[in-house]
Amino acid sequence: MPRPLALRLLEAAPLLLFLAVILLFGTQSAGFLTAANAAQILAQAAPTVIVAVGMTFVLLTAGVDLSVGALMFIGAGVAGHLAIAGYPLPVSIAVMVAIGVAGGGVNALLVSRFGLVPFVATLATLYIGRGLGRWITETRAMNLPESFLVIGASEPLGLPLPVWAAAAVAVAGQCVLSTTPFGRYLYALGADPEGARKAGLPTRRLIAAVYVISGACAGLGGLLALARLGAVSPRFGEFYEFDAITASVLGGTSLYGGRGRVLPDTVVGALLIKTIFSGLVSVQADPYLYPLITATIIFLAVAVDSARSRLAARLTRRVIRVDA
């Protein structure tokens, strides 16, 4: 049975929307359709892409991780102190990722061991993380030494290092999801947790793993964001959780679990968001419009998601008779 055109169109909606946005801003602003701007957008999107990859893993299990931005903040605070104290760069990098993993481990414990609802568990770690981060940074902005900016500034093979890092994470993420048993287990778990348990899948370990992965991605994403900004402000990492969720859902990951891909879906979603905001800047849109635009994007993402699943349900209905 070939997939009907309407369904394929809806499934391609993120990509079509992406093209439309590029066309729209391209015709409105001369500087928009340039290689430099494209590289700029990619570099801006890199941290979001990485965090969103981790988020996709969590969303596949019908969970959610609201703590990613806060974990980025703690990691940045600690790494900032280390960098200022003169520790070499690799130490800061390792510490940031380790903090992400540790924070993810706390989420994993709360959700898989104590059975807390992911929304509530990660909301708690979000607040704890923000509080800890403020304590570590003493609610002051920290400016990092030059050595830290190397990550953001170096451009192997013509693209900024963060872009390569994001691409590597996305490719690795998709490989894990589509070619390893672990990845396929996540889809099974997201579709039917009780069935997954009955099938003998290690459901608790799987759930724990996605939060650890999400935490690690937050650590890595935080590192790249920090390398771009060169400073830790008290609002560092804020709203990354929403960007990541929006990117995943906009790309086609279902909030109900069991459906979604990192490549191309989540990556397209993340690039779409960043392109829109970059375009708004390039046409010098009123900054007060941004929240409205964000709201529209989220609304669109969810609307497309539900339209897609409704249509899929209708179209995969059994054919009872072959009409002449």
């Binding site: 490989c175 070619t179 048993p181 099974a188 579709a191 899948l201």
Partner: peptide
């Protein structure tokens, strides 16, 4: 029924014992 609708028939059949090659982690 305990099959997973979002996986293929083959994936459902092999869910807890996917065939692998050369000890690689890939299916």
């Amino acid at each position: 029924l305990t099959l997973f609708g979002n996986l293929t028939i083959a994936e459902n059949l092999h869910l807890t014992r996917f065939p692998r090659r050369w000890g690689l982690p890939w299916i």
